[in-house]
Design a protein around this nucleic acid. Structure first.
Lengths: 174, 174
DNA sequence: CACCTGACGATATAATATAACATTTTCTCG
DNA sequence: CGAGAAAATGTTATATTATATCGTCAGGTG
């Protein structure tokens, strides 16, 4: 279900990122409480690690951080937590990167689109109703019943276009 | 660059698939000839295997078929051929499946969208200009310069909705 | 407390993809 | 044609991503 249009969402370079994290964790607590699910310490920590930046992070990068915590951890530890968080709509998987990013507005529509900057690695989640509608119409013309969408646009964000255009490589933590 | 709208494209169940393959191989010869590139036996065979059906096929499934040919083959054999074919626009990679599918109209726009049926595994490539335009507008509003797109819609195709709605599992060859 | 369920630990392995270097084939040009 | 360069392929090893399986533990419920 497509909801209202959303505002531009590439986070500004100097923004208060602690606030993003705090907000995300609080929202997660509330989503889980409402659903009668447990946001266990591992799940919470994985969510926090995903939110460490606005760049998608790979499962094994998360695993490494967990190990640095001194915690016992193996791949299933991470994948189970990620699966839980995905299921609650607290994070998204970026298919074209095999990586994960925090969802800035859990509980709302997840028929969204991602903009992924190849220069700074930052990801923006947008929910453009016109785009959603166009997708819906296009599928409907084929009699196709959409169950899930992957819409990932890679390129260069506004800020990086402003900076001098020397490539300095993609930045996604993996 | 988005081109004109295209027609419905889920292949019909009884269609002459040999014709698809023949056409695809001929188109490939012509694309390569025009570009001064070599469609070597391995590349041609991999393309043929990708075109074995309209279902995405994984690299290791291709590898297994190559081995059945009696040919010496290792992962790089397949990945190199796939990379070549991707580069010439002869196949597409389906990110959400880690698999590959033949491109039915090489040489044209590759800013396309895929419909992937979870029931029969078939994939349709569509190029809907309104959708393309909506994507372009949405990105432009953010000042984002798109370099590549991934638009993959998973669901149930028209034919499978018509059939009795028992799930019989996804079908992509992997 | 006894039981049940969900979460986690631990080990192993599957599935996907690439690095590095040797060898062979093909192309180009004298 | 034949030498040298370039492209393609062979081969081995390894990196990266993801899941299966089974045993154990923690927390709720009757």
């Amino acid at each position: 279900m497509t909801t209202k249009r959303r505002q531009p969402v590439f986070p500004k370079t100097g923004h208060d990122h602690d606030h993003c994290v705090t907000t995300a964790l609080a929202a997660a607590e509330s989503v889980c409480a409402a659903a009668g699910e447990r946001l266990t310490p591992i799940r919470k920590r994985v969510l926090e690690l995903v939110w460490a930046s606005h760049r998608p992070i790979g499962a094994y990068a998360i695993l490494d951080r967990l190990k640095e915590d001194g915690r016992s951890a193996a791949p299933p530890t991470v994948y189970r937590a990620l699966e839980f968080l995905l299921g609650r709509g607290l994070i998204h998987r970026i298919e074209s990167l095999n990586a994960f990013v925090g969802c800035p507005h859990p509980g709302e529509s997840h028929l969204v689109q991602f903009l992924i900057c190849r220069s700074c690695g930052m990801t923006a989640e947008i929910d453009d109703r016109r785009l959603g509608d166009a997708i819906g119409r296009s599928a409907a013309e084929q009699g196709f019943a959409i169950q899930s969408r992957v819409v990932e646009l890679s390129g260069i964000c506004s800020a990086c276009q402003g900076a001098r255009p020397r490539g300095h490589g993609a930045h996604a933590a993996r």
